[in-house]
Amino acid sequence: MRKLLIPLTYLVFLVLLIVPLIKIAFGAWEDGVDGLIHAITRPEAVHALMMTGLIVIVVTLLNTLFGVMLSIYLVRGTWLGSRLKQLLNSIVDLPFSVSPVIGGLMIVLILGPSTTIGAFFESIGFKIVYAFPGMVLATLFVTFPLMVREVMPVLQEIGTQQEEAASTLGAYGWTTFWKVTWPLIRWGVIYGVVLTIARSLGEFGAVLVVSGNVMNKTQTATTLVYQDVENFNVVSANGVALILVAFSVALLLVMEWSKKRKGVH
């Protein structure tokens, strides 16, 4: 059994993951070093990568802040009734089961230029849909459960006793959080951050719908790859994809590392 299953497992990984990865890595060099350099130094590529970077930063900051706070409220908050908590808890997962395209569509439907809210914001000169804020919103929507789902179990596992001990020793909420709670959930949060970065880096469907994919304006790295492929410009697509792959693999390594650290405590 063993003699059959191990090679079979290797085969699955080889066919499904390793060979495609290698193919991307080599495909980018098809037109030589110059081709690759050209592919990633095109103005639209530079802009798209910048855009992606900006989205990653903004989304990761917001999602971390709100994700951690919501987790604390959902696990510790006595001011929320248990029924309400259960309801909120099940809503958290919804973005997992919503197609990113639909996620994007939702934002267009609510905040698009033809809606009341959208028109209002546009009149005060704040464009949401087909602009940066909309893209951030769409990415926030799809990444929302990642942080909460990482932090909540950790909070549940560490229990309340250490926090109570801190309060009997004279520490108030804020001190307790930074001195006691934070060091215990830190690795869970870092893991959540890595997942959020990976997801916001790679988000495609939702951003495509919300951004309108306008070159040099609202185009991100992934939507640029899509456009390049649609234009049969596979080598250029490959160049940008290679950068994304490099980031993803790096993130995967951080993911493994933080998973191990998370398990230590």
Binding site: Q161, Q162, E164, A165, A166, S167, T168, L169, G170, A171, Y172, K179, V180, P183
Partner: peptide
């Protein structure tokens, strides 16, 4: 915080 008590928890709750 202000009661001036010491509390030893069942599982100690050490940090």
């Amino acid at each position: 915080q202000e009661r001036g008590i010491g509390f030893v928890f069942q599982n100690y709750a050490l940090f």
